[in-house]
Simulated assay, not measured.
Amino acid sequence: MPKPLCLIVDDSRIIRKVARRIVEGLGFDVSEACDGIEGLEQCLQAMPDLVLLDWRMPTMDGMDFLARLKEISADRMPKVLFCSMESDPRRIAEALAAGADDYVMKPFDGDILESKIDEVGALKARVA
């Protein structure tokens, strides 16, 4: 059985590296994108099971990415976790209303990220 796929969309190479190490340890295959446009291109090639999504990125930000992702994945929307330093509760509510499954503050550690991934049900896909 193939491993579930996690796409990490973040303009920070360091964040992508840290997140990759964590989610690979949880049994996911991982792909990376440095902005929303690259992330959407990867989704068109292979729709992930989970997306870790930064809010503020050049070219296409996380909210625009999320809106476009919903357009192209109508029948198989991946779980989406916003990973950002955004702390305004109204902005977090906006992300959730736009279709994100949950939100995790940067910087995060392995325990926090694993907990959030489990809460949105993405770990269940891994063992199903």
Rank of each mutant, 00 (worst) to 15 (best):
S73T: 15
V51N: 05
E71A: 05
D101T: 08
I92R: 13
R16Y: 02
R91E: 14
L96R: 03
E71S: 10
P78I: 06
G25S: 07
R21A: 15
D109S: 10
G110F: 03
L123S: 02
K124I: 13
C6T: 12
M77W: 07
L50D: 01
D102I: 01
S115K: 15
S84N: 10
M105Q: 11
G110E: 10
V9G: 01
K17T: 14
K116P: 00
K3L: 12
R68V: 13
V23L: 04
G25W: 13
E71K: 14
D111E: 13
S12Y: 01
A46R: 15
P2Q: 08
C34T: 09
L96G: 02
D10W: 06
C83L: 11
V120L: 12
D102Y: 05
G39N: 07
I14A: 00
D11S: 03
D61F: 05
G27L: 03
R21T: 10
V120R: 08
R126F: 07
V9W: 03
G36H: 04
P89L: 06
I15K: 00
R68P: 07
R68N: 13
M1R: 05
S12M: 01
A97E: 09
V127I: 12
I8T: 08
L7Q: 06
D49W: 06
C83A: 12
R21L: 12
P48K: 06
L69I: 10
P2D: 03
I72S: 08
T59V: 15
L113K: 02
M105Y: 11
M60W: 05
D102F: 00
A128K: 11
L69F: 05
P48I: 13
V51H: 02
A46I: 10
V18I: 15
V9Q: 08
S87P: 00
V120N: 05
S87E: 15
L44T: 14
R13V: 15
A19Y: 04
G25P: 05
C34A: 12
V18Q: 02
K79Y: 14
P58I: 14
C43S: 11
A98K: 10
A46V: 09
G39I: 10
D64C: 07
D54G: 06
C34H: 09
D101A: 10
G39D: 10
C83I: 09
P107E: 10
C34R: 09
E41M: 12
E24N: 12
R56M: 07
V23D: 02
L5K: 03
I117R: 00
D61A: 04
C43N: 05
G110T: 11
D35V: 07
